[in-house]
Design a protein around this nucleic acid. Structure first.
Length: 465
RNA sequence: GGCCCGUUCGUCUAUCGGUUAGGACGUCAGGUUUUCAACCUGAAAAGAGGGGUUCGACUCCCCUACGGGCUGCCA
């Protein structure tokens, strides 16, 4: 079995869409799980709609998701001459022909066809006109598609798909200005790049029949096809702007960890038994084309969040810190000081168990990112009543002399509460306010251990005043 | 209009002719609890509709409905 080569071929007309990200992920997973190559090609032949800034945004999105590609991204536009060369070869072989029909003529035909509710498939009158009768006028090159019989294509996801050949039109290969059309460019590029598996959105399923004509004409072996269903919004409609966040970058900005995003996107429309939460290594080992479903899946943020929470909890502390730093940089927030990073690392165990996103984790990390004097937010301030301050002032001396380990601290606090016949819950609120200045934070024991005895005493003393 | 593809709990899905149709997210109820989160126990929740084939259909076939795609000198 030869090496697996997959590709992701976005057109730079916008940011990396969540659907595109998943298509890229499937290609990446399939190749990486088999020691193959994952290539990138930018389909920038439509000059008016292509923007290099979008190309960069797509690359950034893939990088964030951890999808690395082999070799430099290929610019489709740059390969224009090669595409034209193939069109001419097809012309020479009689598999294509020059069509001198003007766009106005074709449009007139289509309007009439629509009015009569007839087929809008254009049948060029130039298909069989000998070249000595050609006018000296602009022309396009069209493929000479079969009109009889039928074609069956095998798709790994969709199964055998059969199309009657009379549904095929003589699509344009080369425009009248000599530039290639997408349909030609993909086939030539996929062939030249050695792509063995084309995994793409099922909006291309019928296009596959048109593209197949070129493989046939050039006598190239066609790649294995896998047309995956698109992702829909929560309402079952095609994902669009009105669904809110649709770009991968939007999710990055909201602080979803890349690992959780990968897991969620992989599981969306693909399954491996009952496995829901899995690592990248498992995904690479398990991913296969036959686990892909045939119907479109809806995007569910709740499940995304759940998986993200699990991935944060399972993450390696140093790696998580690294991701947080990258998140801060990507969102333009002020960078952490070395002291803050160190503090975050010490607090990580207590933070990652209770956060679904990076901002959520950061919010809970406030106690270690801030420094004295601790400023209470409104909710925390409300907990620091006069009675609470008195309790804190009574407790503080008792903590001053104990050894600083979890059991001792816990015993000290329990004893203290018992002696005053109050519940620990009544003490926890004021302690959180004093230590973190927030009501949302890790357990008071975790915070005390992380910031240490001296700092704890200092913060409690501040709050007692 | 023509052609192609799809349809299992609210959502993601398992099942590949015989199961009390399983799991996960979410929801609800209860428990635990130190806020948030988590955790424990339990519950409600599905084969689009109609015909076939078969001893037996979620599973195979047909029709309908609904959803999506293609039908460009866009990609």
């Amino acid at each position: 079995m030869s090496e697996v080569v997959t590709r992701f071929a976005p057109s730079p007309t916008g940011a990396l869409h969540i659907g595109g990200a998943r298509t890229a992920l499937f290609n990446w997973l399939y190749a990486r799980g088999r020691g193959g190559k994952f290539l990138l090609r930018i389909e920038d032949t439509d000059r008016a709609r292509s923007d290099p800034a979008n190309t960069q945004a797509i690359l950034d999105g893939l990088t964030w998701l951890g999808l690395d590609w082999d070799g430099p991204p290929v610019s489709q536009f740059a390969r224009m001459d090669r595409h034209a060369e193939v069109a001419r070869a097809m012309l020479a072989a009689g598999a294509a022909y020059k069509c001198f029909a003007t766009q106005e003529e074709i449009e007139t035909f289509r309007e009439q066809a629509r009015a009569e509710k007839a087929s809008t498939l254009y049948r060029s009158p130039w298909r069989d006109v000998p070249s000595d009768q050609h006018p000296d006028a602009p022309f396009v090159i069209r493929v000479k598609a079969p009109r009889d019989g039928q074609t069956t294509l095998h798709d790994t996801v969709q199964g055998d798909v059969t199309l009657s050949n009379d549904q095929l039109d003589d699509m344009v290969l080369l425009r009248s200005d000599g530039t290639p059309v997408y349909m030609l460019a993909v086939v030539v590029d996929d062939h030249d790049m050695g792509v063995t598996h084309v995994i793409r959105g099922d909006d291309h399923l019928t296009n596959a029949f048109r593209q197949n004509l070129i493989y046939l004409a050039m006598d190239w072996s066609a790649p294995i096809l896998a047309h995956i269903p698109l992702i829909f919004g929560p309402d079952g409609k095609k994902l669009s702007k009105r669904h809110g966040a649709t770009a991968a970058a939007d999710y990055q900005a909201m602080g979803y960890p890349a690992a959780g995003m990968r897991n969620y996107l992989t599981r969306l429309g693909w399954s491996h038994g009952d496995d829901e939460f899995f690592s990248d290594a498992q995904a690479r080992a398990w991913f296969d084309l036959d686990g892909i479903g045939k119907s479109p899946a809806r995007f569910d943020v709740k499940k995304l969040e759940n998986l993200c929470g699990q991935h944060i909890a399972a993450a390696d502390n140093a790696a998580l810190l690294h991701e947080i730093v990258a998140f801060l940089a990507a969102t333009g927030a002020t960078a952490l000081t070395p002291e803050q990073e160190a503090g975050l690392l010490r607090a990580m165990d207590s933070l990652k168990e209770r956060s679904k996103t990076i901002p959520e984790l950061l919010e809970k990390a406030h106690f270690v990112l801030t420094s004295r004097p601790i400023v209470q937010d409104d909710r925390a301030a409300a907990l620091l009543t006069d009675d609470a301050r008195i309790l804190l002032s009574e407790l503080t001396p008792q903590l001053q002399t104990v050894s600083w380990d979890r059991d001792t601290i816990e015993t000290t606090l329990t004893t203290f509460c018992n002696a005053r016949a109050i519940k620990f819950g009544q003490m926890a609120g004021p302690l959180r306010a004093a230590l973190a200045g927030r009501t949302v934070c890790p357990s008071v024991f975790d915070m005390m251990l992380v910031i240490g005895q001296t700092e704890t005493i200092a913060r409690l003393t501040d709050a007692s005043a």
